[in-house]
């Protein structure tokens, strides 16, 4: 175990996987010489050379198509898209190529990873603060992960690189400096599709991913002061969902709050609540509550941004209302 920042844990995962498999290579804007705007790829060009760590022009649509086609030829590309806000530019590659080719041509595999970071809270404004989880989680054939701890970041990125299917890896700009213990072991991985119960509880289940797990844990503390025992489940993977973990928790608590930093309408929280109703309807003692960003751009002004982002107090309020 070693204490390291989330960004360092990702860097470690990339480095270990590049050492392990010479087919792994990285490309994206400013990731080579500059080491990435969040320093996730720092030092990797120096170690692995310019052919395996490549700077590219600002052309997300082309980059995504490159990831698809390079992976079809037997390499394992890891593409960095600097802000999740630009994911709409890569959607054609994901929707019309990555999610389809395996269906059209059974011998084709596309083992690429698309890393990006999203989320608000950094005063980055309406074009650099979005959480577009649902846009990518909507696409069949694409796996989507969103770890919150440095250890899960390392373990899931390694699993994503080794996976034979396209994986979108969602990071959060406020998590890069989060420090925690991370296993040193080069064989350490975290399985895709497995949720983690980060706090056990009996009265209500809170489901979240990425930074919202931290807010949910704080919410559970607030609720505990009211004598409410909240269970917090870090889904870690948005797709495929760990249904067993979700239904088992609801069978215990009979109440659920789903939290997502993205928009509400047709958002990831909507999908989660519908899934809960599909698989655990008869265990529900109240409607599933959703805590999301309102359907609006993320404001640049700090007080306004704080006023709209989901946080611990809003999650706790939703839990209390559900339990009434």
């Amino acid at each position: 175990m070693a204490m390291m920042r989330y960004a360092e844990a990702l860097n470690r995962a990339l480095r270990e996987e590049m050492q392990r498999d010479s087919n792994v290579f990285l490309f994206g804007e400013d990731i080579a010489r500059y080491g990435g705007v969040f320093k996730v790829t720092k030092g990797l060009m120096e170690e692995f050379g310019e052919s395996r760590v490549r700077d590219t022009p600002i052309s997300e649509q082309t980059l995504a198509a490159m990831a698809v086609t390079a992976s079809m030829t037997g390499t394992r590309p890891v593409l960095e898209i600097m802000y999740a806000d630009f994911m709409p530019l890569v959607l054609d590659a994901l929707i019309n190529q990555a999610s389809i080719y395996e269906y059209l041509w059974p011998n084709v595999t596309m083992p690429f990873v698309l890393r990006t970071q999203g989320g608000g809270g950094a005063g980055a404004g309406a074009q650099h603060s979005k959480s577009l989880d649902s846009l990518v989680a909507h696409i069949p054939g694409i796996k989507v992960v969103a770890p919150v701890t440095p250890a899960d970041a390392k373990g899931l990125l390694k699993s994503a690189i080794r996976d034979s299917q396209p994986v979108v890896f969602l990071e959060h700009k406020l998590l890069y400096n989060l420090r925690d213990e991370v296993p040193d072991d080069a064989d350490f991985t975290v399985p895709i599709g497995k949720a983690k119960t980060v706090r056990e509880g009996a009265d209500i289940s809170i489901f979240a991913t990425s930074r919202m797990v931290l807010e949910s844990q704080k919410a559970a503390e607030l609720l505990a002061q009211d004598g409410i025992s909240a269970e917090v489940i870090d889904l870690r993977t948005l797709r495929p969902l760990d249904l067993d973990a979700i239904t088992a928790s609801i069978a215990k608590t009979h109440h659920a709050v789903v939290v997502n930093e993205g928009w509400r309408f047709c958002g990831y929280a909507a999908e989660l609540s519908a899934t809960i109703m599909d698989f655990a309807f008869d265990d529900l003692d109240a409607p599933v509550a959703r805590v999301t960003l309102p359907d609006m751009p993320v404001p640049y002004s700090e007080p306004l941004e704080l006023a709209v982002l989901p946080n611990a107090a809003r999650i706790a309020d939703a839990a209390r209302a559900t339990l009434k």
Binding site: H254, F281, D282, D283, L284, D285, A286, K324
Partner: peptide, 26 residues
């Protein structure tokens, strides 16, 4: 609630005779 319905049915309890304690009326 779905859970209340399921449990009431399993115990043979008629929901019509029950009073909701929740402000939702459920």
């Amino acid at each position: 609630s779905p859970l209340a319905r399921r449990v009431a049915a399993s115990r043979g309890i008629d929901l019509a005779g029950l009073v909701a304690s929740s402000p939702s009326g459920r």
